[in-house]
Design a binder for these strands. Sequence first.
RNA 1: GUGGCUGUAGCUCAAUGGCAGAGUGCUUGACUGUGGAUCAAGAUGUUGUGGGUUCGAGCCCCAUCAGCCACCCCA
Length: 427
Amino acid sequence: MTSKPTIPAVKGMREFYPEDLAVRNYIYQKVCQAATQFGYQEWESPYVEAIALYAAKSGEELVEKQSFVFSDRGGDKITLRPELTPSLARMVAKRQGELVFPLRWWQYGPMWRYEQPQKGRTREFFQWNVDMLGVNSPEADAELISVAATFLKLVGLSPQQATILVNNRRLMDAQFDFLGITPENRTFVSGLVDRRTKMKPEAWDVYALENGLNQQQLDGLEKILGDLDLWQKSDELVRLFKALEALGVREYVKFDPNIMRGLLYYTGTVFEAFDVSGSVRRAILGGGRYDNLLADVGGDPLSGVGFAMGDVVIGIILQEKGLIPAFTPSPAPILVTVFDESLWLDSFAVAAELRAAGLNVIVSPEPAKLPKQFKFADRMGIRVAVVLGPDEAASGQVTLKNLKNGTQQTVSRSQAPKEISEILASA
RNA sequence: GUGGCUGUAGCUCAAUGGCAGAGUGCUUGACUGUGGAUCAAGAUGUUGUGGGUUCGAGCCCCAUCAGCCACCCCA
């Protein structure tokens, strides 16, 4: 054996073996399908950006602690992109005058964040971003939630398995006002709400009282957070749920006053999707409405709504539930064997004929014992083995073996493509 | 950045401080023109890395790297 590699992969970076890439590509395919059903356009932005792009809009945590930052040869600070929204804002602002609104864009690509790798979290991940810009309405919010729900449905997650929880920032702010919580205290209270499911109730109470809430406010807050009918007090949420009903995805969505989302730039509807039954407690995806997206990059004010989904959490969930299609190692379903040295190049010629007929074909690179070649075919998930031995060569024929059921037939070389196609079509 | 657990054959894991092991996979054969099943034989290790304690370290101590889990944050 060779010695062990002395230089490991960089911490938290992903290595995609063929079976891993198959999973990634499967998710990509479903994401594309969901977005395309709703008429969203695929776009792409640079993987490397100036750090200054994020300084304006993204949180301090993301820029200072979670970005991979480098200097280019001119001394400018650049970074592997930790998120997509600032790039979106810039590209839209640059062509704001000529783009057609409402704009519906999606992207699926790599992102990097310098975090401690753990379950559902790596330093390199693929993220699906979907955004609609230029419309500010609960009905537009409903469309985005509907795209997300459509994806969940496409990958085989039922409403019982995965749920999208929805809340509204304006509704919560109004409730906070009613309790006499000051605007400067709102950020703390939002964080408090966010933390509620992670702390023991008593500890949470103490934490709240120690940070400026009085007992009356705490009681009121707990009442609000337990009120699953609270959405009826929000015109926006009433319209949202009616639209979701019409869009046919209402069963995937639930109101939950505990959903706040940490990002400061959300202003209205917010939502997160969770796996209800599995081992991952992290959100599958999250998003919401943000106003004034373009203000910081010099564009005209423009409201938008969007969400993001990482590939890591959804990948774990789909694997756990057996929802990833079986992996076939070989993309070519046909193996042409090489019987011996004298027939070596004849086998190559047979392979070329089959490829010319439009088939995908592996040919053994050198003579080997047939059992070994058949074993290889089996391991690679190949469905048809082609044998060209002395008998076949003498009569201008080849033997075709169906590896699924073990049957075989000997046919002329000219007929082989047609016969193989029939075998492949039969299963 | 903080805390906890782990690191032994390709993989999953054993081994009271005293000879480095099993299952699985791999190679070969039973079967020189046919894979999956069965049986038999065989090969495989700087015990993550570097120090230390000890007559003796896979095991104890320190450091370091990596992985997992939780916190922070978030997709």
